[in-house]
Design a protein around this nucleic acid. Structure first.
Lengths: 209, 209
DNA sequence: CACTGTCAAGAGCACTGCTCACGCTTCTGT
DNA sequence: ACAGAAGCGTGAGCAGTGCTCTTGACAGTG
């Protein structure tokens, strides 16, 4: 039953976006009276959380699939990044729900952080077999420990500088996808494929892939 | 009158976020009956558009102020980027409205693109007096013309490769700010100041500043 | 004076999230 | 086998929303 609710929720999310998702309409679609939904899902926000978790899971597995192919680390990086963009373009509302604006002041429910790190882990996987570039400057205090924490959280052994470089690469990646998806580059970039590929390669070089 | 409406709208936006903004409540606050608002603003979306324009303008002028200080191009780049992050942290809901998720499929009303490019122009200003790095590979077809378009749109004369590098830097910038603001790095980064400054410097190096 | 246009009021429609008291059904313990 | 309990769905209802439409007050102009 709860599965049916999230499935219907996902359909409405994909069609009309998160703002238009209403508990009443999923109840209607499930031939249930509106109040009946509340036996299964506590509130609208709870349904959104469910959908966020499902979204991270689907995106994570898509990235894992894309990165599982044989190839050099750089090829796997390219494939993973390409899969991220492809998924975002295929599921814009879901992407917006995951990486767009939450209500600021909003604390992600703890249930979401595991699926969320799954996505990051998939993006980090190509680094596992590649040596970090040696010419990086050493890091100062807090940044160094943050870099270690990043690597630790992913279960990778990376130099701290590589960890913070990786997080920066993610920022670029999500920035690129968001700018494109949210229409901020419509008047400027014509060949989004080439543009994205260009920067993905630049990131790969920066990470030593 | 319209100014009062947007002012009240901005107050509610800042306090409760875009999702909670309602025409009825700004009408209430202005001692007006709900339907009276519709004489001045066509719909809720129209008010949002007004607020978006106001937001771009405020952010743009904040960046212009920050970048106007004397100094080397790199110092001005640092100041501008810092101002972007500071503004976002001070006005999270407004930032989310500008650069978070719009309803995908949403086409920004034409009135918003001028104020929006004002922000980009302010971010590009430090490049005006700095020579582009010479060691960049040449660009192929569509990317090259896109790079020209970017420079043209900003009124700068830049090599195409510098234009696309600049757009990539923006993606990183907005990615960094968004990840931080939307809570995606809460469990990972402790010293957000240092982290941001580190990557801003890396971007500066990449742009030849 | 009469006319016209601007403004606000108020009622009303359709929708939302959410609560609560009520029955029905099915499963379980004695 | 029967009573109780638990799970499940119903319907009414509250407060709030966006938005529309008709009505009425007030001014400025011929």
């Amino acid at each position: 039953m709860l599965a049916e609710i999230t499935a219907e929720g996902r359909r409405q999310l994909a069609r009309d976006g998160a703002a238009a998702l209403s508990l009443r309409s999923v109840a209607r679609e499930l031939d249930m009276v509106s109040s009946g939904i509340y036996r299964y899902v506590e509130s609208r926000d709870a349904l959104l959380t469910l959908l966020i978790i499902a979204g991270y899971d689907r995106l994570g597995s898509a990235l894992e699939r894309a990165g599982a192919d044989e190839g050099t680390p750089r090829e796997r990086w390219r494939a993973t990044c390409g899969a991220l963009r492809a998924w975002a373009r295929a599921n814009p509302h879901e992407y917006a729900l995951l990486y767009g604006s939450p209500v600021p002041g909003y604390a992600a429910p703890p249930d979401t952080i595991d699926p969320a790190t799954r996505v990051y882990a998939a993006l980090a996987a190509p680094l596992r077999d590649a040596p970090a570039p040696a010419d990086r400057p050493a890091l100062s205090g807090a940044l160094a420990t943050d870099g270690e924490r990043i690597a630790d959280g992913l279960g990778l052994t990376l130099p701290p500088a590589q960890g913070v470089a990786l997080l920066g690469a993610w920022a670029t990646l999500f920035g690129l996808v968001s700018l494109e998806l949210f229409g901020h580059t419509h008047n400027v970039v014509t060949d989004h494929d080439a543009f994205f590929a260009h920067h993905v390669d630049a990131l790969a070089r920066g990470l030593g892939l």
